[in-house]
């Protein structure tokens, strides 16, 4: 497995998080988080279950509101943005859900058409058809076009979820645990897909994962969420070259398995 090139930190920042706090009742999840996403990079966010990784990216698309802090996404402060501006921003930010969140009353084709027809009303029927088929082909699942989500495997659902997100041609992709619960071979497939998306669509991405192999393969940069903060950021080896017990446990467990 070859290491990906490190991030060019002179690139423009597409996401800029400063002093972000979020708690649910007495449960302080994010404590003064700072994080940047540079244009064109794949940033892997690692962290134990329940540390607030999903909460973090939900804040980026305005699904959750932070308690305080500054969150700039493509130059927009998502905290005090109008609903209309938020919609415009969401068009440029793709969100692939941890559980895929496919619309289970619709076929795969309708799943992909749903965001497309509602955001690009001028498309002709033929253009819609082509866009959907091209995207399904890109994730390697053109054959599933008329199936219902319940007929698909977990890995296929992940792919369809990613395709549904990509169809709006986002500038930023947020992947919430794209490989969770999948076998190692399917994981490799998905990792390949994430890298392909980066190259082909020139997206900047945040990839959340527990899986270090995935982190190593897709990440230009790694950030580790420990106790509500990103204490360790850098290339893969920079992050794991430490005596911090919490980090070491994470590393050892993953690779002894």
């Amino acid at each position: 497995m070859e290491q990906k090139p490190p991030t060019n930190k002179n690139a423009e920042r597409v996401v800029e998080i400063r002093g972000l706090n979020k708690s649910f009742g007495s449960n302080e999840v994010l404590k003064h988080v700072d994080l940047d996403l540079y244009k064109g990079e794949n940033l892997v966010v690692l962290g134990k279950s329940g540390t607030g990784k999903s909460v973090l990216i939900k804040i980026l698309v305005g699904l959750l509101k932070p308690d305080s802090g500054r969150v700039l996404v493509l130059g927009n402060n998502v905290v005090d943005i109008s609903y209309k501006e938020l919609l415009a921003l969401r068009l440029k930010v793709g969100f692939s859900f941890q559980n895929s969140a496919l619309y289970d009353s619709m076929t795969v084709r309708e799943n992909l058409e749903f965001p497309l027809v509602r955001n690009q009303r001028k498309l002709t029927r033929a253009e819609k058809k082509r866009a959907v088929e091209e995207m399904l082909d890109a994730v390697g699942l053109l054959k599933a076009i008329n199936q219902m989500p319940s007929e698909l495997s977990g890995g296929q659902r992940k792919r369809i979820g990613i395709a549904r997100t990509l169809i709006l041609q986002p500038e930023i992709m947020l992947y919430d645990e794209p490989t969770a619960g999948l076998d190692p071979i399917t994981c490799l497939d998905i990792n390949g897909l994430i890298n392909e998306v980066q190259e082909r669509f020139h997206t900047s991405s945040i990839v959340i994962t527990h899986d270090l192999a995935c982190a190593k393969e897709v990440g230009n940069r790694v950030a580790m969420l420990l106790d509500g903060k990103f204490e360790r950021q850098g290339t893969f080896s920079e992050v794991f070259d430490t005596d911090d017990e919490r980090v070491k446990t994470f590393y050892e467990y993953n690779f002894i398995q």
Binding site: R90, Q98, N99
Partner: peptide
């Protein structure tokens, strides 16, 4: 749909 985040998915796709 709420529980399986399908409603959230509609929201984040700007619909």
């Amino acid at each position: 749909m709420r529980v399986t985040e399908q409603i959230d998915a509609m929201e984040v796709s700007a619909t």
